[in-house]
Structure formats: C-alpha cells, structure tokens
C-alpha cells in the first residue's frame, strides 16, 4: 500500500504541538506571515516571543514590502530603512504609495543594499525627483538587470527625456508580454500596485498634451465618439465607474465624474437625489441614505431651530 512513511516523524511532532493548550500561536500563523503587509508584520512581531523570533530570523515575509494607506502617511525615514533592512539585502519588490517623506538618498541607499529588486513602485512619493529615480534604476539595471517594472506616477517634473532614459534601462517587453491598457475605473479602485502587473512603467507620453502622465484607454471596445480617445486624465474626462470617455457628465456628491448611464444606476441621496460614486458610497441599507451634505444641513437646521 502506498503510504507516506518518511514524513511521519516530523508530522507527529506537529500534531503534538497542535495539541498544546492555547496560549502559543497556532503553527498556521507562521505560514501566514509571508502573506502579510508591513504594518501587520510589525503588529505580529509584537504579539509574542515566538512570532517575534520567527520574524526576526526569516527574510521571506520582508522580501516584498508594500506601504500604502494608512501606513504611508506615518512612514518615517528611519521606519523605512528599518523594514528594508529586514530582508537582509534580498528585497524583491518595494512599493511605496504616496510616501511623501522619502527622498532620493534613502531610495538610493535601499537600492544599493538590495540589488535584486524586481519591482520599484513609488507612485505619489513626491519627495523623489526624476533624477533620483533614474539613478536608482540605473544602479539596479547595472547589477543584475532584474528590474521588471517601475511606477512613478505623481512624481513632479518627469519629462519625456527622463522617461526615455528610464525605458532604456528596463528590459524590453518579451513576445508574449504586451503593453496593457490602463482603464481609469480600474486604476481608481485599486490604487495599490499589487494588482497592476504586466506593465514595465506606469506613465507614458499623453498623445494629446504630450505630457508624461498616466494615459488611460477607453473601456468601450469601439469608442462612441469614433475618435481615438486615449489620453491622460487632464485631456479626456472619464467615468469613475466604468472608465468610458464621457460627453454628458453626471455629477456626484463626491465631485467625481460619471457617465449618464452609471449616474442613473447609482443609489441616490433621499433628499437631494444625487449619487455618490461607488468608491465613496458607504454601505447603505435598502431604504437608501442621506448624503453628508444633506446630513450637515439637517444638523444645522435642527441646531438653529433649537436655538
């Protein structure tokens, strides 16, 4: 009979440990560590001695660092350098979303210490300059040429020349890998870089205004306007819900733009009959909701009356 004898001894051990009274962390939690983002890793390292030791001795959970909301606003330079050092030089991906405090010097230091970085995503890190990014990307491409993708949307002063230099350091697209279109509504719903794979660099030159920006494609297969409406967010207005270019605009309470079709389908405020876009809509009951603006007015009205 086919059995799995060789694995038995170590697994019996596991079983015994599982039977221990609660108090020590379940073995499963040690596997989960590799799936946690930075803030959660810091929390776990404070839970108990064994988890702390595990996190101290293991580089695996620290190889992919992703700092986004809400941790990004709190991320200090010391904090970043500390978490980056945990990977012991084997950091694979670094995603810092809107981390304004980071400057070129720290980025360079991390890149120097971690030559095998494959993903360098720093959208909205306004403390970085195009020159700093170019220096970091150059360092990485000289070491091993492992760098697969970068994201720099939202950095100030990125010119066409910078973009060309950056592209020259990145590996060209392989045959089965194509430049994927970016749709505005998808971009909005996951600002996180984890979900956007397959592009070497997020920004490109807008065909309309020639600025280096995120360029969105129309989500309609054949655009109604029968024109090529690929363009940045400044040149082409797009629906926040479905990503099509919009002619007639439906307005929302949250000041986002939606197409008329989406406007009709969004739930509306019971008083002013205006919708929120889905991103700003908090879960509401089937009886509808009152928007913040009307709610404020009502509170003010009640206060005035009671005065």
């Amino acid at each position: 009979m086919a059995t799995i004898d060789s694995h038995l001894s170590s697994d019996e051990e596991t079983k015994n440990r599982e039977a221990e009274p609660t108090g020590s962390p379940h073995d499963a939690l040690f596997f989960v560590l590799a799936y946690l983002p930075v803030y959660e890793l810091l929390v776990m390292s404070e839970v108990c001695v064994s988890l702390r030791e595990a996190l101290k001795n293991d580089v695996l959970p620290w190889q992919n660092i992703c700092v986004e909301r809400p941790l990004n606003s709190r991320l200090s330079i010391e904090g970043l350098l500390e978490i980056a050092s945990r990977a012991n030089g084997r950091l694979k991906s670094l995603s810092l979303v809107n981390c304004g405090k980071i400057t070129d010097d720290e980025l360079q230091r991390i890149v120097d210490e971690n030559p095998i970085i494959r993903k360098l995503h720093v959208p909205g890190c306004t403390g970085l300059t195009p020159e700093g990014i170019i220096r970091a990307v150059k360092t990485l491409s000289q070491h091993h040429g492992n760098l697969e993708s970068i994201q720099i949307n939202g950095l100030f002063g990125v010119e066409k020349e910078h973009l060309e230099t950056l592209c020259s350091y990145l590996q060209p697209y392989s045959a089965n890998q194509q430049k994927q279109p970016i749709f505005y509504h998808q971009y909005r719903s996951f600002q996180t870089s984890r979900n956007k794979e397959g592009r070497r660099i997020d920004v490109e030159v807008c065909p309309i205004c020639s600025q280096v920006r995120m360029v969105f494609s129309c989500s309609r297969e054949t655009c109604e306007k029968k024109i090529d409406c690929r363009g940045c967010n400044f040149c082409i207005l797009r629906c926040a819900e479905c990503g099509v270019c919009v002619g007639e605009i439906g307005e929302t309470i949250c000041a986002d733009i939606v197409c008329l079709n989406c406007w009709l389908h969004l739930p509306k405020c019971n008083f002013c009959n205006e919708p929120y876009c889905n991103q700003h809509l908090s879960p509401c009951s089937s009886t509808g909701f009152v928007c913040d603006v009307c709610d404020m007015k009502a509170v003010k009205f009640i206060n005035d009356v009671s005065d």
Binding site: Y35, V43, M44
Partner: peptide, 26 residues
C-alpha cells in the same frame, strides 16, 4: 493563508492576541 491574513489586516496587537488566543509572553 490570504484569508487568515485578511483577519489581521489593520488590527491592533491586542486584537490579534485575543482573536488567535495567544498569550503575551513578553
């Protein structure tokens, strides 16, 4: 693992201890 990780997302140290029945041994 991702499902368990979701339970830890944005939680405090105390919450994690309680949720998973872990005793603080620091």
């Amino acid at each position: 693992c991702t499902a368990i990780a979701k339970h830890i997302e944005n939680k405090s140290v105390e919450y994690v201890r309680e949720y998973f029945g872990i005793v603080n041994d620091f």
